[in-house]
Every structure is written in C-alpha cells, then in structure tokens.
C-alpha cells in the first residue's frame, strides 16, 4: 500500500459517503424541504386546503394571529399552556426513564417482562387508551369516584381547570415511559463494562458508579432525548384532542390543537400554516439556545471518543508490531 492507494481509498470513501446518504437527501428534498416551502407559501394565502383557488394575502395571517384578540383569543394563552406542559413533562419523563433504566440494568430478573409492561401503552391504540382513561378518571363511577368515596373528597383531576393539564402531563409521561426506557437502557448497555470495574477499584459504590460512569456514558443519548422531548412536547396534541378537546375552558388547549382545528376543522390552511411557522421559529430558537447553553453533549461525546482513540492507538501499535512485515509506511495516516 503506497500513498497513491491511500488517497484513492480516501476518495473512494468520500464518494461512498455521498452514495450512502443519497437516498436520505432525495427523501429530504421531496418529503421535507418541498413541503416546508409549500407550507411557507400557503401561510401567505387564504387557501382552505382543498379548493382550486385562493388569494394572496401577504402578512395578513401572521398579523391577525398576533393581534386580533377577538378572532384568535387562544393564541397567546395556548403558547403559555404548551410551554407549561413542556416544563411538566420533559424533566420528569427523562429522569423517570433514567431511574427505571438504571434499575432494569442492574441485573435483576424479569427485565424483559418489566420492559414489555412499560411498553404496553405505546402499542395500544391511543384512542382506545384515552377512552379507557376517561373511564378511570370519571368522577361519577371510575377509580376517581372510588377514591373520593374513600377519602370523602371531591376531587376531579381531569375536569378542573387547575389540575387538568397536570393530569394530561402525567398520562403523557406514563405513556412515553416505555419508549424512553428502551432508548436509555440500550445506551446504558453500550457503556464499557470495564469503566464500571475501574470505578469500583477506585472505591466507588453504586451512587458513584451512577453519577460518574453511567450518566456521562449515556449523556449523548440523553442530550438527544432532551432536545427531541422538548420539541415533541411543544407539539403536544393527541391526548388533548382525545381526552379533553381543549380542556375545561381552554385549560388544556395546546398550540397544535389550535393548528389542527384551523387546518382540518375549519379549512383555514393559511392561518394554520402561519401558526405552525411561529411554532417552528420558537422551536428553532429554543434548540439553538440548548445547543449554546449545554455544549457538554458534544464535549462528552468527544471525550469518550478520545478515550477510545487512545486505547485503539495502543492496540494498533501492538498489531502493527505483529504484522510488521506488511506495511512499510504508516506516517501521515490521516484516517479519523
């Protein structure tokens, strides 16, 4: 192997890179970029989603949703509700997933059974699950009624404005646990076991191991999960639509519920896309802030990679010595 075949290899691998992501790019252009642009254009019209004609209205849709408190009284309140919902669900669901995954990962029996149990809500049709929860939370004859009789209270979590959103948040955390645990636990299993042994040798107990080995080890995945959870919780819609339809006096009217109603119930595609772009903008800003404030995700990822690099370097040197006859020059080896 000489220098020529080295650069050929680099070129071949670069070309392969493009080839490998070609389907992704094609998909992105057709099914992501094109719709985004189309939606953007729609937000400047008064199109209703199905008619053949529409008129250009410029910024009217945006101005209306921001300023017309008569026609769009829920716009600002729903932003607040959506953010509140996000603040309730994201921290709790991620922390719960970590704790549960850690427990499952500590070598207990029945891991499979537990994980399957947690995953049940994810596989059951959400419509059926919400019909079920409506039944359980019913103040007249559900579990709630039974508890009320027992404790002589008058509690109605789903239909009281102050607690309605929290109830839906709990349901969302409950429903998403299976998926989150799956991802976190799989990341945990990927952590090098010898790091745990090293920690134990250094005199660390289970808490130490958890905070110094497990958490940093899964941090790239965690980081990813936080960002995606924030993004998806800001788009919360399903449970609100199925269980409260916007809640007692708009207490659970999240932003996407407004968008859905505008788009599919009232044929206001222009308004709906304008609102969606406002949300898109907000999400972009938040994600950008997250990247700036919490760069550790990448740092830690790099550190782990660096550590592995060093070990790999050691092994390479050893294997080189073993196969010393085969390659004369290894200087200038610029592989990653």
């Amino acid at each position: 192997m000489g220098e020529q075949s080295l650069s050929k290899t680099i070129k071949k691998r670069a070309l392969a890179g493009w080839f490998f992501i070609a389907p992704l790019l094609a998909y992105f252009l057709i099914f992501q970029l094109a719709p985004i642009i189309i939606a953007f254009i729609i937000s400047f019209t008064d199109w209703d989603g199905s008619s053949a004609d529409f008129t250009w209205v410029g910024l009217k849709n945006y101005i209306q949703i921001f300023t017309n408190r008569i026609l769009y009284p829920d716009f600002w309140p729903s932003l607040g509700i959506t953010f509140g919902y996000m603040a309730l669900t994201v921290p709790v669901s991620i922390m719960l997933a970590i704790v549960v995954a850690a427990m499952l990962n500590s070598g207990i029996k029945g891991e499979r059974l537990f994980k399957t149990a947690f995953y049940i809500p994810c596989v059951t049709a959400s419509a059926a699950m919400s019909a079920l929860w409506l039944f359980i939370l019913d103040p007249g004859f559900g579990l709630v009624a039974g508890l009320n009789d027992l404790f002589h209270t008058n509690w109605d979590p789903l239909h009281t404005s102050s607690t309605s959103l929290i109830t839906l948040a709990i349901m969302s955390i409950w429903g998403g646990l299976g998926y989150n645990v799956l991802i976190v636990e799989s990341a945990m299993k990927n952590i090098n076991k010898s790091l745990y042994d090293a920690c134990e040798v250094d005199g660390g107990g289970s808490f130490r191991k958890f905070f110094h080995v497990t958490l940093p080890g899964i941090s790239p995945t965690l980081y990813f999960m936080i960002i995606t959870s924030v993004i998806s919780s800001l788009q919360a819609f399903d449970t609100m639509y199925l269980m409260t339809g916007g809640g007692p006096a708009g207490a659970t009217t999240t932003f996407m519920l407004l968008v859905y109603n505008a788009m599919f119930k009232h044929g206001q595609a222009g308004i709906a896309t304008a609102m969606s772009y406002v949300l898109f903008f907000i999400i972009m800003v938040i994600t950008f802030i997250q990247f700036k404030i919490v760069p550790q995700g990448y740092q830690i990822e790099n550190e782990i990679t660096l550590r592995k690099e060093k070990k790999a370097e050691e092994r390479r040197r050893v294997s080189r010595l073993r196969l010393s006859g085969r390659f004369a020059k290894r200087k200038g080896d610029s592989h990653e």
Binding site: P35, I36, Q235, M263, A269, A272, F280, I283
Partner: peptide, 11 residues
C-alpha cells in the same frame, strides 16, 4: 424534526 408535523400533512 422541528417542523410541526401537522403542517406538513397537506403539502
């Protein structure tokens, strides 16, 4: 992933 899914439906 930051684009709200509903808005992409009709396009």
């Amino acid at each position: 992933i930051m684009i709200p899914g509903t808005v992409m439906t009709i396009p």
